[in-house]
């Protein structure tokens, strides 16, 4: 089976400015892939290359087996796209816009009508009069309405309220059941955690890692707080495998653990332990773990 998206040393510079650098990605058909990174990391640059809005400085990208440069029109037939901030013709009503895009795609509005109903979207209003959230709904509808094989969604739930975000997640799951592939960029880590199978983490234009969600969790940074019966010193724990950011106040140790907490527990057991608290690792912590690798120490408290 051809990959849904495949890039080889994909690099984009805007003049002197770095967009992305040597990105190698392989996204399988039928998976939900999350591209995770802070603003300015290069997520949108990747997406705009896939859609041929911008051209790579070097390297190549293929989408559904087609070259992003020479077969772009063919690609766009099979791809639905939603940007983070859906901006379009403000003077058209939502219905007129969807009709226009459906005509350009040679499709109809059957699915669009169902989606609009589902997202409680009034199609008779002018786009320019819609709130940001409602405009984003129009964007969602136009991206999904042509039943594309691949959906490329750049920060899709920006501006949607939590209830609609849930509805969106349900929609994503249904599409995946239908065999669709989704490429979702986000800096909302909890969102990616819920809907994605695999995640790529991008930072300053470079892909730091691509992993299964479950594998990422294994690298999760856990915050641990242990209260001892008698006083302890930091030196007892600083050398323990996976332990970082050790601080001791009186009888209490607080630290971060990357991955398994086994070694820390063994080390703690040499003392009398009164209480253990640990925070469930979220992807925020995972993310920071990857970041703190090259950023040196001390940044992991940011979350």
């Amino acid at each position: 089976m051809t990959a849904a998206i495949s890039t080889a040393s994909l690099t984009k510079f805007y003049g002197e400015h770095r967009g992305i650098l040597d990105v190698d990605l392989e996204i399988n058909q039928g998976e939900v892939f999350g591209l995770l990174g802070p603003n300015g990391a290069g997520k949108t640059t990747c997406i705009r290359v896939f859609l041929d809005f911008i051209r790579p400085t070097s390297g190549t990208a293929t989408v559904l087996g087609l070259d992003s440069r020479s077969d772009s029109v063919e690609i766009r037939k099979k791809v639905g796209y939603l940007p983070g901030d859906f901006v379009t013709y403000e003077k058209l009503t939502a219905h007129e816009l969807l009709e226009y895009f459906a005509n350009l795609r040679g499709g109809n509005l059957n699915k669009a009508r169902l989606l609009a109903e589902r997202f409680d979207l009034d199609l008779s209003r002018k786009i320019g009069e819609l709130s940001r959230g409602n405009r984003q709904k129009v964007g969602l509808v136009q991206a999904f309405m042509s039943d594309p094989e691949l959906l490329i969604l750049d920060e899709p739930t920006t501006g949607l309220d939590p209830l609609l975000q849930q509805e969106f997640h349900k929609l994503v799951l249904e599409e995946v059941k239908d065999g669709k592939t989704l490429f979702i960029s986000s800096h909302v880590l909890s969102e990616v955690e819920i809907i994605c199978d695999r995640v790529g983490i991008i930072r300053e234009g470079s892909m730091i890692t691509v992993e299964e969600i479950s594998a990422l969790r294994e690298r999760a940074l856990t915050r641990v707080k242990i209260e001892f019966a008698d006083s302890v010193v930091p030196a007892d724990f600083e050398a323990v495998e996976g332990v970082a950011d050790v601080s001791v106040t009186d009888h209490t140790l607080t630290c971060h653990v990357i991955g398994s907490v086994n070694s820390l527990i063994k080390a703690a057991a040499k003392h009398t332990v009164n209480r253990i608290e640990s925070a469930q690792p979220g992807l925020e912590e995972v993310f920071l773990a990857y970041y703190s690798d090259d950023q040196g120490k001390g940044d992991s408290d940011a979350a």
Partner: peptide, 14 residues
């Protein structure tokens, strides 16, 4: 300049 070109060209048209 009014940022509508991206969305237009996301459709299959050269």
């Amino acid at each position: 300049e009014s940022h509508t070109l991206d969305q237009l060209l996301a459709n299959p048209i050269s």
